[in-house]
């Protein structure tokens, strides 16, 4: 079972492996690569699921949570193809350190400890098929750290019993952080290319997981469990339990 950790708690070796995995993935220009996978979200594939939308029937489908869980899984597996056992860390933007310092240093340092360019700082968006073509580095335009979500807002969201209420709050907090980071992260078209997108969404996924854990059921409308999460080979049912996908979230762990 792989454990996803808070970015602040990665050991030096874990951070080094994470950066190595991202670096390797960014070297590929084919469908194994970071550029391709990032392009599933916005340009050029536009497969991301936000808000409640319909598909082939009158019901509105709230697939934001399961879709992004499948997306994170996809990238994590691709990273693990390059560096076994690496996992996606989360960025808790409501933590005291985030609300004091903003972006995690792991994602904002220009170089790693060896002086190499930090692959978590930015990536090259290369999408020649859009109009106009996209060929630029990701960039950020963060707001004041005190504008990040508060623990109180997160706790209020987690206390919601109804899935629709929880999901509305989660998407709104999610939207606010995209806007806070700004730049490439502030636009659906380019957000997936910023490496910090993945730490942001791992936190979103973690919060959904926490909300699920506080319930007797798995907290998703049962009539939607067979909905497909294109382009991934999953239905909602397949991604409802993180353990089934081979990972769990850990705030602390120790082993003999």
């Amino acid at each position: 079972m792989n454990l996803r950790k808070n970015i602040q708690n990665l050991t030096n070796d874990e951070l080094k492996n994470l950066r190595l995995a991202f670096s390797k993935l960014m070297e590929f220009r084919d469908n194994r690569g970071f550029n391709y996978i990032a392009g599933i979200h916005g340009a050029p594939q536009f497969k991301c699921w936000h808000h409640w939308r319909r598909r082939g029937e009158p019901r509105l489908l709230p697939l934001f949570c399961p879709w992004h869980r499948a997306y994170l899984y996809w990238l994590e597996k691709s990273l693990q193809d390059q560096v076994p056992d690496v996992t996606l860390p989360w960025w808790d933007w409501s933590s005291p350190i985030s609300r004091s310092e903003g972006l995690p240093k792991a994602y904002s340092e220009r170089t790693d400890s060896a002086g190499n360019p930090n692959p978590l700082l930015k990536s090259r968006i290369f999408v020649p098929t859009t109009t106009p073509p996209l060929n630029e580095d990701t960039f950020r335009n963060p707001g004041s750290p005190s504008e990040l979500p508060t623990k109180n807002e997160v706790d209020t969201m987690l206390s919601k019993q109804d899935f629709a209420d929880f999901e509305d709050d989660l998407e709104d907090i999610h939207d606010s952080v995209h806007g806070w980071v700004g730049g490439s992260m502030g636009r659906v078209v380019t957000a997936g290319f910023d490496p910090v997108f993945w730490a942001h969404h791992t936190n979103i996924d973690r919060l959904w997981r926490i909300w699920q854990m506080n319930r007797a059921d798995l907290g998703f409308p049962p009539d939607l469990l067979n909905e497909i999460l294109e382009p991934f080979p999953f239905t909602v049912r397949d991604v409802l339990e993180v353990k089934r996908l081979g990972y769990e979230y850990a705030s602390a762990s120790g082993s003999s």
Partner: peptide, 8 residues
């Protein structure tokens, strides 16, 4: 609102 970012 997380905006699309214009048309590409």
């Amino acid at each position: 609102v997380f905006g699309h970012g214009g048309c590409f």
